[in-house]
């Protein structure tokens, strides 16, 4: 078991024939992901990486039965690609592209919600179910199979945490990089219940950062609904207010969105909060051996 994706998930790639799309689609296929085709308008009918290329997502879905799309198109075309996927009946779009305008994502997300399509990202490493399916750009070899679910706003902190969990002798069920933009798709609040319901997941690692209040919402949800142990780290305890720390959404504005308030809320919800990200693995070992 796992959440959202597994070895049977059929995936298409939007922006399949581009440089990034090609490189990472190839990596995903090598990991075992069932990539059944791709979309590049104007290149329909061709073959790429041994899979068919289509002009539209609709054609690709009809011909392949794909339910998930991995999006690699350039930033200016992200909203169009997301809306096309939603319109074609895709059930989950994983948006890897970094740098999409916030206004575009506002419209794209609203449309995706209306069409019942889930989204992950943008500006994220994607999702991986260990040893089964990788839809994104993470180095697959770090994610050994195990019983820990992982949700993270940061790509490299996802790798860092997974690596620590594995070094402690545990492994990952599914890891989801949700991205750190101001508007993102699936977040803690939607993913936590999925991990709670997954019998293979025994504990959850949650990585947050400064800015916004998704971690505060997550804390309220955990308090009411989550029975599995949760370990959390919030990046940016030493970040100055008013400065954007790399991610478009990672900014303390008007004194809100600080690491301290998020850590306090999570602690009050019974979450094991670590102050140093170097202690994530140890904390998982602690809660798992209880």
């Amino acid at each position: 078991m796992s959440i959202l994706v597994n070895k049977d998930t059929k995936v298409i790639v939007q922006g399949f024939t581009g440089k990034e799309g090609t490189f990472h689609a190839e990596q995903c296929m090598a990991y075992g992901t069932k990539i059944v085709g791709g979309v590049t308008p104007g290149k329909g009918g061709q073959e790429h990486l041994g899979q068919p290329v289509f002009n539209t997502v609709e054609e690709a879905v009809r011909a392949t039965g794909a339910t998930v799309s991995m999006i690699f198109v350039p930033p200016a075309f992200v909203s169009d690609a997301v809306m096309e996927a939603a319109d074609a009946g895709i059930s989950l779009a994983v948006i890897i592209t970094e740098g999409a305008p916030v206004k575009d994502m506002m419209f794209a997300k609203a449309y995706a919600v209306k069409k019942d399509m889930m989204t992950i990202g943008p500006n994220c490493p994607g999702i991986i179910t260990a040893d089964e399916c990788k839809i994104g750009i993470m180095p697959g070899f770090i994610f050994k199979k195990g019983n820990i679910g992982l949700i993270s706003k940061s790509g490299t902190l996802t790798y860092e945490s997974a690596n620590q969990v594995v070094k402690e002798g545990f492994g990952i069920t599914t890891a989801v990089g949700i991205g750190g933009d101001p508007i993102i798709g699936l977040s803690y609040k939607q993913l936590l219940p999925m991990f709670e319901a997954d019998p293979e997941t025994h504990a959850i690692v949650m990585i947050g950062e400064i800015g916004g209040d998704l971690e505060i919402q997550a804390a309220a949800y955990i308090k009411e609904h989550i029975t599995k142990p949760v370990v959390a780290f919030i990046a940016g305890q030493t970040a100055p207010a008013g400065k954007r720390m790399g991610h478009a959404g990672a900014i303390i504005s008007g004194g809100a969105g600080t690491a301290a308030e998020k850590m306090a809320a999570l602690e009050a919800a019974g979450v094991k909060v670590v102050v140093s990200p170097a202690d994530i693995g140890k904390a998982i070992a602690e809660v798992m051996r209880k």
Binding site: S152, K153, S154, G155, T156, L157, E160, G180, I207, E209, I210, F233, A235, G236, Q237, T238, A239, M245, G246, H247, A250, A259, V275, S276, P277, A278
Partner: peptide, 12 residues
């Protein structure tokens, strides 16, 4: 590399 790990490194 990465904004989250960069902040995490500062925190560490």
């Amino acid at each position: 590399n990465g904004a989250g790990l960069a902040m995490g490194t500062m925190d560490t």
